[in-house]
Design a protein around this nucleic acid. Structure first.
Length: 546
RNA sequence: GCGCCUGUGGCUCAACGGAUAGAGCACUAGCCUCCGAAGCUGGUGGUGCAGGUUCAAUUCCUGCCAGGCGCACCA
């Protein structure tokens, strides 16, 4: 719930274990948890259950003894004003109940410090590079890229909020086979536009946008050899515009073409060779990735002398480390999961630890319209694009929907539901809570923060429940970090909104006794800060009115 | 065949190995002379199958069944 209190309670339990002589038996971390239900207190610990077998005694007896000791320690360490009671419940859980004063103090902190009060310094300035989207500049962004963009951007926001030093990077595949094919596709369409009869190969880019590029290339008299680069530039501009409209910003665009020119690929090869991880066989150059748990060794230079895709990628990841990043995060599509081991092998070959690279596989989203899946096929150029989703449902709903499910899970995205401005749509539920608070604050005749503020009048279940939910924000961010997944924020904001709506429905803010009105204004102002901070992390617009 | 992901009410999803498996939609019964009813309250209804580990399994392990994705000298 809150780091400081959590630390205090952990220390308290640890001290008691020592007194009782159980610390030797219990060497794991002390599992201080939020209970599944708030009728079990504010924090819970299940040590008694875990110790039961070791001590060969019933968990209830152990818990009772622990509680005795805890009560004494609480008095001794003057924590009585914080903790109202500790008791054994259920099978042998030890539950801590905090005083309302604790929650009032925390609320005060949020109101006076704003979102700074919600921050946690988990990053401590650590340099992290998050690479995502990285779509080839051969076509518009698809919904698969869109989900990666939403997840990557939101996760980067969270990391920044947790004081990581974050760079968002897009790896640009601006040379190689697919760019050649792109150029040939344009060339052929150009001929077609000039009235020539052509046969358009199946593996060429089919989309209608190729005609647009061909017309532009014709106007500017681009030479055939340069058509690939011209088309890639043209498409990249479109991609950049789409990302900006989606609210996703990148700090750097890493060009593969530049990488190839820099000599860094050769340098990486040389170092791998020195370390003995390269060998030649069948006329090809192989990377010994099996030395690091890969299924088979991988070719990096083909027998025809050209490089595989892995070659620049190995150098690219080395370059990230060389620039001082100590944590690399890659967001890839599910079609790349077979690729994880070989890249991981490469960073280990250079002496980096396996956990310095995190790969987040972003599962595909299936687009539905009125409950019917929309068929997609990249080859025919018939796929739903980010642009279409943006045009149809708008940026806020799109971002929220892409973040609503665990990143590793498939996601059903119904355009009609996302478009609805109704209860079916969770985006509006959350935005509505925010707008409602703004509305009350607007029409309030009293300023909440003038003079002394006495929050002790906040003692209703819904009032304390709302504060407790607000304090969970930090826990949620912590979970996002540990699981490498930002989606929990969307779940949390819905819960926070529910807590607010419940409070709103039962208790009036305005027109109460002055002290009550002011305290409740402070309460909803605090809720507004947390809602706003969460929505900002998601990259969703705050609505004052709707 | 091998690897990864996923099986939870009619639908979409939750649940650090913990307490009576939670929400939303749909269905259904209520709540606005009162700060925004885009809201709130109640009801119906659920862990793919079979074993195992554990004081405790939706969660971990094994097998099976079902679905998705991947297994290149493609990118």
């Amino acid at each position: 719930m809150q780091n400081d209190i959590q630390e205090k309670l952990t220390a308290l339990v640890s001290r008691c274990l020592e007194h009782l002589g159980w610390l030797e038996e219990y060497k794991e971390n002390i599992p201080l948890d939020l209970p599944t239900d708030n009728r079990f207190g504010d924090f819970t610990v299940n040590i008694a259950l875990k110790l039961s077998k070791i001590l060969k005694r019933s968990p209830q007896l152990i818990a009772a003894e622990l509680v005795d000791c805890l009560e004494k320690e609480i008095i001794k360490s003057k924590l009585s004003d914080l903790i109202s009671k500790v008791k054994v419940e259920g099978a042998g859980f030890v539950n801590f109940y905090l005083n309302a004063g604790y929650f009032h103090a925390k609320l005060k902190e949020i109101i006076s410090c704003g979102k700074e009060a919600l921050k946690l310094d988990l990053g401590k300035g650590k340099k992290v590079l998050i690479e995502f989207v990285s779509a080839n500049p051969t076509g518009c962004l698809s919904v698969a890229h869109a989900r990666q963009a939403a997840v990557g951007d939101c996760f980067a926001n969270i990391l920044e909020f947790l004081n990581f030093d974050v760079r968002r990077e897009y790896y640009l595949n601006d040379e190689g086979n697919q760019i050649n094919i792109l150029g040939l596709s344009v060339e052929l369409r150009l001929k077609e536009l000039k009235g020539e009869k052509i046969e358009f190969p199946e593996n060429y880019y089919q989309g209608d946008y190729i005609y647009d590029i061909a017309r532009q290339a014709d106007i500017r008299r681009i030479k055939a050899a340069d058509l690939g680069d011209f088309a890639a530039d043209y498409i990249l501009k479109i991609i950049k515009k789409e990302l900006i409209d989606f609210g996703v910003h990148f700090d750097s665009w890493y060009s593969q073409k530049e990488l190839a020119k820099s000599g860094k690929i050769q340098q990486a090869f040389d170092r791998l060779k020195d370390k003995g991880f390269l060998y030649e066989q069948d006329g090809a150059l192989w990377f010994k990735s099996t030395a690091f748990g890969d299924d088979k060794d991988r070719v990096i230079v083909k027998s025809d002398g050209s490089q595989t895709y892995l070659a620049p990628d190995i150098a690219y990841h080395q370059d990230k480390f060389n620039q001082g990043f100590s944590w690399l995060i890659n967001l890839w599509g599910p079609d790349h999961h077979g690729y994880i081991n070989r890249i991981r092998a490469s960073i280990e070959a250079f002496g980096h630890k396996s956990d310095e690279l995190s790969v987040i596989i972003v599962q595909l989203a299936t687009i539905f319209r009125n409950g019917q899946p929309v068929q997609m096929s990249t080859r025919s150029g018939q796929y739903i694009t980010l642009r279409e989703v943006l045009d149809e449902v708008g940026r806020d709903a799109a971002r929220f929907f892409f973040l609503m499910r665990r990143t590793s899970s498939h996601l059903d995205f119904d355009l009609e539901v996302a478009k609805k401005q109704s209860a079916e749509n969770p985006v509006y539920y959350v935005q509505y809570a925010h707008a409602r608070i703004c509305s009350i604050l607007r029409s309030s005749p009293v300023a909440p923060d003038k003079g002394d503020l006495d929050l002790s009048v906040l003692k209703e279940k819904e009032e304390l429940g709302l504060i407790k939910k607000m304090l969970e924000f930090k826990v949620v961010l912590n979970i996002c970090l540990v699981t490498n997944d930002p989606y929990m924020v969307t779940v949390y904001l819905q819960e926070l909104s529910t807590s607010f709506h419940k409070f709103y429905d039962l208790h009036r803010v305005l027109g109460q006794e002055d002290s009550v009105t002011r305290a409740r204004l402070a309460l909803i102002k605090g809720a507004k800060i947390v809602l706003a901070t969460g929505l900002e992390l998601l990259g969703i617009t705050l609505l004052e009115k709707m």
